[in-house]
């Protein structure tokens, strides 16, 4: 047996034994690469995810809504930071990660390439998009890579307020005027299917799933997570008194799950490939923010250096 295969066997044995992998431990190159890809994608999603919501901060209908949304968007920035830090433990720099985002080499969740057209969209995003994210993230708190799992624990603790915040917005609109309720229905209509797409392609079309499950990066498949989300969310829509835009959605007593209609996978792949309604706008906003902030980063470094020199002078004087 080659030494490499021996190491891989020992590695898999540790995973099977539910031991966590830490940054300085030996790991297969593919495990490292898969994690860099997945964690950075996750981090980018948090950062780009601030854009559609940030769009509504100045137009929130009340101070209560405004502080809630502001706090949520601030959390997303923090979540991005936790995740970038976790990715950096694998030997990639923050600058490289940003570069991959800005050049389009790295992806972020396609859901953020849809526009937020009305205030109800902020409710729908908190309820559905954060709801879908939580299902994925709760699973990831038990992922095999220590720093990723720890980031997820922290994120999950903070995230549940996001979903409640969103649902409360939806509830208020649904109990309001017919126009307000129609607004909530319209937001559900537009965000339902893209939310289901957040779980990724069907298991049969997801080549990475098997290895990811074996390495305990993921503990459930895309289809399992999607079903879980639908089962949880359908009764919540019913409570609001609005209709999920899927004529095939129906409780299946025998399966103990909801049946649901076919996802438009052409749309899914189009948005992944960059042809969604807001792909260009989102990326441009990110690149602009980075480039326009360059002078601030440089000034901060210059200021830090100056202070350090002064403190050395004081110490040696």
């Amino acid at each position: 047996m080659s030494p490499e295969i021996k190491l891989e066997d020992a590695f898999q044995a540790r995973i099977d034994d539910e031991q966590k992998i830490e940054p300085k431990d030996w790991m297969p190159e593919k495990y490292r690469k898969t994690h860099i890809r997945q964690i950075s994608q996750h981090a980018h999603s948090e950062i780009v995810g601030m854009l559609p919501e940030g769009n509504w901060i100045t137009r929130a209908p009340s101070l209560r809504r405004k502080v809630g949304l502001l706090a949520k968007v601030q959390d997303e920035a923090g979540h991005g930071l936790y995740l970038y830090s976790a990715a950096e433990t694998l030997g990639i720099s923050r600058d490289e990660l940003f570069d991959q985002l800005h050049t389009g080499k790295a992806k972020y969740s396609s859901i953020f390439n849809y526009p937020t057209l009305s205030w109800a969209d902020i409710g729908a995003i908190g309820w559905l998009v954060d709801g879908a994210a939580i299902i994925n993230q709760v699973m990831l708190t038990r992922t095999s890579y220590g720093p990723y799992a720890r980031a997820m624990v922290r994120i999950c603790k903070e995230e549940s307020f996001h979903q409640r915040q969103g649902y409360e917005i939806m509830l208020t609109l649904c109990q309001g005027t017919p126009e307000q309720k129609a607004m909530a229905q319209d937001a559900l209509n537009r965000f339902w299917w893209p939310s289901l797409m957040m779980f990724g392609p069907r298991d049969a079309e997801s080549p990475n799933t098997e290895q990811s499950v074996k390495w305990k990066i993921k503990r459930k498949t895309n289809d399992e997570l999607r079903q879980q989300f639908i089962d949880i969310t359908a009764p919540q829509a019913e409570y609001l008194g609005i209709t999920i835009p899927d004529p095939d959605l129906k409780w299946n007593e025998e399966r103990g799950h909801y049946d649901f209609g076919e996802i438009n996978w052409d749309e899914f792949w189009q948005v992944v490939k960059g042809n969604g309604p807001c792909n260009k706008e989102r990326l441009q906003a990110r690149v602009d923010a980075w480039e326009n902030g360059a002078w601030v980063r440089e000034a901060a470094v210059a200021y830090g250096n100056k202070k350090e020199k002064e403190s050395i002078k004081v110490k040696t004087a």
């Binding site: 940054p23 830090s85 950096e88 433990t89 694998l90 030997g91 990639i92 720099s93 600058d95 490289e96 940003f98 570069d99």
Partner: peptide
């Protein structure tokens, strides 16, 4: 993390 400034393209 290990800093990789020297390989950065920024």
């Amino acid at each position: 993390s290990e800093s990789k400034n020297e390989t950065s393209t920024q």
